[in-house]
Structure formats: C-alpha cells, structure tokens
Design a protein around this nucleic acid. Structure first.
Length: 289
DNA sequence: CACTTGACCTGTCCGC
DNA sequence: TGCGGACAGGTCAAGT
C-alpha cells in the first residue's frame, strides 16, 4: 500500500478513533507480523492506553501510556482497521467498507479494547510488521536514523531537496526518489505522478538534472501528496483507511495505471515501461530522456 | 560507498 | 476451466 498520503490518512483516522482506549488483550498468529508478541512484549501492552498516533515516512507510531510505542510498517498490503461492536456485526456498513467482514484470513494481529471494539492489523502478503519499542528509543532505531526528510515539512526547501539527491547522482531519478534515505515517503504511485508533473523522464540520470528541474519536482511531490491526503489516499488494490474505507486519489491520477489513456496535458497515449525494476507510467511526449 | 537484483509472501490476471 | 508465469503500493540482504 501505503505511501506517505495513505499512512497519513490512517494516522488521522486512528487519532479520531482510538485515543484513550485501553488494550485488554493482543493476539497474533504470525510471528513475522509481530515478532516476540507471545512473550516479552505483552506486559507493556496489556492495560496500556493509547496516548498518540504519529507518522514518520511510511511508518506509523502508536504511543502507549506505558512509555512504549507500537512501530508499524504496512509495506505493500497492510491495513489497520478499527471496528466497533455496532459496526462489526454489519449495521448497514457501506459497500466501500470492510468493516462488517473483519477479522478475515489476512488478519495478522488483533488488539482487543475489551468493549467490543478492535484494531485489526491485516496484511495479505505478510511483508508488514508491528514492533514494540520503548518510546525514547524510537528515534534510535535503524530506520529512523537513516530515513530522509519529510517532504511536506513547512521548513523543507527546494534547495535542500536537490541537495539530498547528490548521494545518488549516477542512478535514475526514479530509483533515487524511491530511496527512503533521500526523501521520506515517496513510493511508486507518487514517483510516477510527480515525475509526470515535472515533465521528467524517470530514467533520467540524477546528475544530469538542472536545479530548475529539481525545483519543479519538489513542487510536484508536495502537490500530489497534499492532493492525495485530501482525497484520502490511493486505493490501487488493498489500501483502506482506519474505518475500512477506500481512498479516491486514483480518480485523479494522471499517469499511474493510466496506460492506453490520453495524457491529460498533450493527449499522447500513456505507456507503461520498466525503470529501476518497477512498473513505470509515462507520457512519452512530455517526458523525454 | 553506490548501485542492481533477487527475496520475502499471497492473490489475481492474462495467455495458452 | 486449468495451469504457468508475470506482476502488485516496499524494503532488505546480497552481489558486483
């Protein structure tokens, strides 16, 4: 799933739904999804209250009153869905929501709030994970030390953005923008969308791009991510928000999964190619090597 | 160090 | 219908 806008959408939903709730039990049947959950970790979770839900890059951080934090990566197909007693048994859940159907066979971890409500961590492909870390240690875990700046931070500038790419000057712009140590939170959807916006071919070598191109790309990354957050993220396949509902950014996508359709800018047919081993969507006229 | 590729999993879709 | 292969929103550990 989930790139920055999707994780941000889940974060906002959870902040409305689970703050102050107490976890009365936790269950996981897949050790990969929640390592050590059977033993060491339980006493820091049971009877803990949720105090805050945060996001860094594509990682969700659920702070607990025990001064521990649930660190969660959704990877490709992870979902975090909150369900209450009332909607769990299907009191007219909308068609675009999973809520009445959970748990299902993709449910890997279940947090029980003891009042008939639950938080389900679902993950079809089992790439995602939940880990428990002491809250003060969160900034010290490997991922947090290596990850690049947040593209939507107010004080992040186009100049800083361009500087970050110097470490990847001999690779393609697509590979570089997907590198989480360069910039946080960009994945395959928003890479393609922002490169189209800036009229940059994804296979262009980083070192050959002018500052004015970086500046344009910087603005496009912020534009597509802000638009996507406003639309509740992209549901390409599995993604849903904390209420089990899909996002609508794909209705506004200009190139991602639009192959065969006309480019919204020039009408040329959008094509799909492979760059950096990833499916990549471009307008062959607007984006030249 | 910088870069590329395969591996991790399950499910779906497409061509034969 | 069935089967094999390619592919899917993301990172890692290897290899060069």
């Amino acid at each position: 799933m989930p790139e920055l806008p999707e994780v941000e959408t889940v974060k906002r939903g959870l902040n409305k739904l689970i703050i102050g709730r107490k976890i009365t039990s936790v269950k996981s049947d897949n050790p990969k999804s929640f390592p050590n959950s059977q033993v060491d970790v339980r006493s820091f979770i049971i009877n803990a209250k949720i105090t805050c839900v945060r996001r860094r890059a594509k990682v969700l951080l659920i702070d607990l009153s025990t001064n521990y934090t649930l660190v969660i990566h959704l990877k490709m197909t992870g979902q975090l869905v909150f369900v209450t007693k009332a909607n769990r048994f299907g009191a007219g859940h909308p068609n675009d929501s999973l809520i009445g159907l959970l748990p299902d066979k993709s449910t890997r971890v279940t947090f029980d709030f003891g009042d008939g409500s639950y938080l389900f961590f679902n993950d079809q492909r089992k790439f995602g994970w939940v880990r428990l870390v002491p809250t003060p240690e969160v900034p010290n875990i490997d991922f947090m030390k290596k990850v690049g700046p947040e593209p939507l931070d107010d004080d992040f500038t186009a100049l800083q953005f361009a500087e970050r790419f110097k470490r990847r000057s001999r690779t393609t712009i697509k590979a570089a923008i997907l590198d989480q140590t360069v910039i946080a939170g960009v994945g395959n959807i928003y890479a393609d969308e922002s490169l189209w916006g800036a009229k940059i071919h994804p296979a262009k070598i980083v070192g050959d791009l002018s500052f004015s191109k970086f500046k344009h790309l910087f603005n496009e990354v912020r534009y597509v991510m802000n638009l996507s957050i406003e639309k509740g993220g992209s549901t390409n396949r599995n993604y849903v928000n904390a209420e089990g509902k899909k996002g609508s950014y794909m209705d506004f996508a200009r190139v991602f999964r639009q192959e065969g359709l006309p480019c919204p800018r020039c009408g040329t047919e959008i094509i799909k190619i492979k760059v950096a081993s990833r499916g990549t969507h471009i307008c062959p006229k607007c984006q030249r090597l």
